[in-house]
């Protein structure tokens, strides 16, 4: 079990750090997405940042980080705008609108990547879908004052994670209120639309910085699975935020071990472990665990799925 650490601890250390950072920043944003029932908007944006990245690359001819962020931001906001446009201007329901919008943009991104020079962009099908978290430590390290601090993507992700933590502290009450009751938000004098688009912008940035590490699809997992697990265990938002951090720590570490053991995709293994944690919380949550419900039902000897026999009969 300690085998990977003995061989090349620093290497795995960076991968682990990256996993945790991605998990924390995605998970915090994901908590709000879940509260707003927008989990699949996360799915949509995680796919549709791709054309933004490609266009940014085509314009700058390099993997310029501000340009990539800008591209992703624009693509994310276009996605949200497109979804709203389709949904408001026709009778197509929001779920179908989400599906149409993101598949179109993603397809556009894939076609563009296959049109432009493949060698330079360094975004291929594998990277889009699997992510390359295992290669993170191999990126050139950033040097400050001549001292190598760490691989660039990890430092970047750390910056994003810090920003997300900072923002969710600063805007905690606004986000909480607007997620719970948009009407109340407006009456309290906050700008609900601005908060919405702000959240989408943060989501785009988080997604694009995690994109390279875990790929388009597994970003969705990073966004919602920690939050879902936390929601099984607590109904209070600050506690959920804390649980998200714990979740990403455990799933990253366990996932890393799993991937070394099975010799498979590290990002995939991290998500699988995260999903496993959700299943555990689902089954054994102290307040809401399925197992306790089953056992209760077994002892009561009646009741269908999702219901429990009531105490007493007539009152």
């Amino acid at each position: 079990m300690i085998e990977p650490w003995a061989e090349s601890g620093a290497l795995y250390g960076w991968i682990l750090a990256m996993g945790i950072l991605v998990g924390v920043s995605c998970g915090l944003v994901g908590n709000y997405l879940l509260l707003r029932r927008m989990a699949l908007v996360g799915d949509a944006i995680s796919h549709s940042v791709l054309p933004g990245l490609v266009v940014a690359f085509m314009l700058t001819h390099s993997r310029n980080i501000p340009a990539m962020f800008a591209g992703a931001l624009v693509a994310g906001l276009i996605t949200v705008g497109l979804i709203e446009f389709i949904h408001k201007k026709s009778r197509v329901k929001p779920d179908a609108a989400i599906c149409i919008a993101f598949t179109t943009l993603f397809a556009l991104g894939v076609v563009m990547t296959s049109l432009i020079d493949k060698g330079g962009l360094h975004i291929d099908a594998e990277c889009i879908l699997y992510g390359e978290i295992a290669f993170v430590p191999l990126e050139p390290p950033v040097e400050w004052f001549g001292i190598a601090i760490g691989p660039q993507p990890v430092l970047l992700m750390a910056g994003v994670a810090l920003a997300v933590v900072g923002l969710s502290v600063v805007f905690y009450k606004e986000l909480l209120v607007s997620s719970f009751d948009p009407g109340l938000t407006t009456s309290l004098g906050f700008n609900a639309a601005a908060l919405h688009y702000g959240l989408m912008a943060v989501l785009s940035v988080v997604v694009v910085s995690a994109f390279e590490a875990v790929g388009a699809v597994m970003v969705v997992a990073m966004l919602i699975i920690p939050g879902m697990t936390a929601a099984q265990l607590s109904s209070r938002l600050p506690v959920r935020h804390g649980l998200v951090v714990v979740h990403s720590g455990i799933s990253s570490l366990a996932g890393l071990h799993l991937s070394v053991w099975l010799n498979c995709s590290t990002a995939g293994a991290m998500v699988v472990m995260g999903a496993l944690l959700f299943v555990l919380a689902w089954l054994f949550s102290p307040s809401d665990g399925l197992v306790w419900r089953w056992r209760r039902r077994g002892s009561d000897g009646s009741g269908e799925e999702g219901t429990v026999a009531s105490p007493g009969g007539k009152v």
Binding site: G306, T307, A309, G313
Partner: peptide, 17 residues
């Protein structure tokens, strides 16, 4: 006869006859 119904866990009808 003696119908009791619960939504999720919360009873909404007790022993209807």
């Amino acid at each position: 006869h003696d119908l009791t119904v619960a939504y999720y866990k919360k009873p909404v009808l007790y022993g209807i006859d």
